[in-house]
Amino acid sequence: MAENILEVNNLKMHFEGKRGFSFGSETPVVKAVDGVTFNVKVGESVGLVGESGCGKTTVGRTVMKLYEPTSGEIIFQGQDISKLKPRAMKKYRSSMQMIFQDPFSSLNPRHTVGSIIESSFVIHGITPEGGVKEAVRGLLAKVGLNPEHINRFPHEFSGGQRQRIGIARALALNPKFIVADEPVSALDVSIQAQIVNLLDDLQKEFGIAFLFIAHDLSVVQHISDRVIVMYLGKIMEMAPTFDLFLKPRHPYTKALLSAVPVPDPKIGRAREKILLQGDLPSPANPPKGCVFNTRCWKAQDLCRTTVPEVLEIAPSHSLACHFPE
C-alpha cells in the first residue's frame, strides 16, 4: 500500500470575526475548518468538494501553511509541519505547490512569463541543469504553450493559457504534491477540458499527488481517485470516487449529486431530484449537532443535539451521519 504524502489530523482553522455590534468581549469566530482528518497518498489525486464557504480553500491554504492552523496536525512527508515557522517551512516549499482559480490575479502583470516561472527557481536558489532559460522553455512546452512566447506578458494570453502558465510555475521545482484550487472554474467550457486533460497527464506522468478543490462534481469525478465532501467546515463523507458517485451514503452527498444538472435531457427527465430546503447556514453560527440538520430530510432529535462522528463504514469509505442511507 502506498504511503501517505500528506496526513491531516483534526485540523482546525478558526478566523477571528470582525468586532461587530455585539457587546462584551466576545467576537464571533468563523470556524472555517473545524476538525478535519484525511490523508493523501503518494501520487494520489484526492478531490475536495462542497458548496461555497464550506472551507475548501481554507483547507488547501492551511495545508500549504499559508495560514497558521488553530490546532491539529499536518504531516507532510512524515514530518509535522503544522507548527513550523516560515523559515523552517522553506525546505518543504519546493515539494508542495498551489494552483489558483483565478489565473488573472495570480500572475504579476508587469513580469514576463519567463520571469514569472524563473522566480520559482530564484526564490529557492536552485539552478536547474542546462540553465534557467532552458528549463523555463521546457516547462512551457510541457504545459502546451509555445516556448517562443517566453518574453510575453500575462495579458497577451487567454484565460486557459494563463492557467497553463500558473501550472508551469507550480511544476518548476518538481513538486510531489499540488493543491489545485478550482483550477478550471474560471475557464470557458471548451477550454476546461484542455486543462483537465493536462492535469490528468501531469499527474500520471510525474506521479504528483493532488488535492483537487472544485465545486463542479463532474470535473472532480473525472480527475480524482478519492473524494472528500465537506459541509460547513466539516467532512461529511469520504470515499473512493466510484463508490461515492455510485452509492453515496451521506444525505448531503446524495442531495449534492442529485442537484448537479446533467447535460443529458433524457436522464434529467427520468431522475428524481432531491430539492433541499433553505440555504446554507452561516459558518459563524453553525447549527448544533449535525451541521447539516437544518436542511436534512432525515434529521431527528439526535441530529439536533449530537455531532455525528466520522466513522469508517467500509474500507476507505467513511462518513459522519447518525442515519446514513
Binding site: V196, V219, H222, V262, P263
Partner: peptide, 26 residues
Amino acid sequence: RGLLASLPRLEQSSLGHRLLAIPGTP
C-alpha cells in the same frame, strides 16, 4: 458536438477516459 463531447460526465463512468477537448480558443 465538440462541446458535448468535451464535458466530463457524472452519469457514465468516465473514469480514466481522456476528455475530448476542442483545441484552441475562440
